[in-house]
């Protein structure tokens, strides 16, 4: 199956906004993250499976509002008994399908249903603050949270604190609108679209 990005016709590379007289390190960077495998795992309410002992790509399932990750896979807490697995391993499902049986878990492939935009730079938090009511100062590397950005439901994944890197995930159909909102928010700081 060929992946066609929802931002294919709108994500233009270049430098935009108030970027003059600023060196590259001061500019925000905006990047679309593509070709990742995304699975939602939900434990059934009547399941007695002990998730604290379960293992996915060498990772335990994370605590509330936390992320567990290795170099290729990130597991985000989405809600009680609900996780999002994001990986660049094409065969990630094969690695956990025997442990997460369909008797206890509902597993859904969401790879083509999300748009992911990565904001990087010292002012990345300021960009998110413009559209989200979340108290973002309390969150940092290894945290994740669902929230809204200009009325679009989003998932925030805090990749790194230094440099600040935040991934914003939204439903694919909201991708274009989210891109416009994020680029608008970045204009006053100047940003490089890569």
């Amino acid at each position: 199956m060929t992946y066609i990005s929802s931002l294919q016709n709108i994500h233009k590379h270049g430098t935009f906004g108030d970027y003059e007289n600023k060196n590259e390190n001061e500019l925000l960077k905006l990047k679309e993250v593509k070709n990742l495998i995304i699975y939602q795992i939900v434990k059934y309410k009547n399941s007695t499976a002990d998730v604290s002992k379960m293992n996915l790509d060498g990772l335990r399932l994370p605590d509330p509002l936390k992320v567990k990750h290795n170099s290729s896979t990130r597991i985000l807490w989405m809600g009680p008994d609900n996780w999002l697995v994001i990986s660049d391993k094409k065969n990630i499902f094969d690695t956990f399908k025997n442990d997460f049986t369909d008797k206890d878990f509902a597993i859904t492939d969401l790879s083509h249903s999300r748009t992911i935009i990565e904001v990087e730079g010292n002012l990345a938090r300021e960009v998110i603050k413009k559209g989200s009511p979340l108290n973002i100062n309390e969150l940092g590397e290894g945290d994740c949270s669902n929230s809204v950005f200009h009325a679009i439901t989003i998932t925030l994944d805090f990749i790194s604190d230094n440099p600040q890197v935040i991934r914003v995930l939204a439903l694919r159909s909201f991708g274009e609108s989210l891109h416009h909102s994020l680029t608008d928010a970045c204009l006053e700081f100047g940003f490089k679209s890569v």
Binding site: P64, L65, G79, P80, P133, L134, N135, S145, N146, S147, V148, A151
Partner: peptide
Amino acid sequence: MLHINCPFCGLRAQKEF
């Protein structure tokens, strides 16, 4: 705007509810 303490996520703005 209300601030509502979700039993799972903590204090959040009404916009999310």
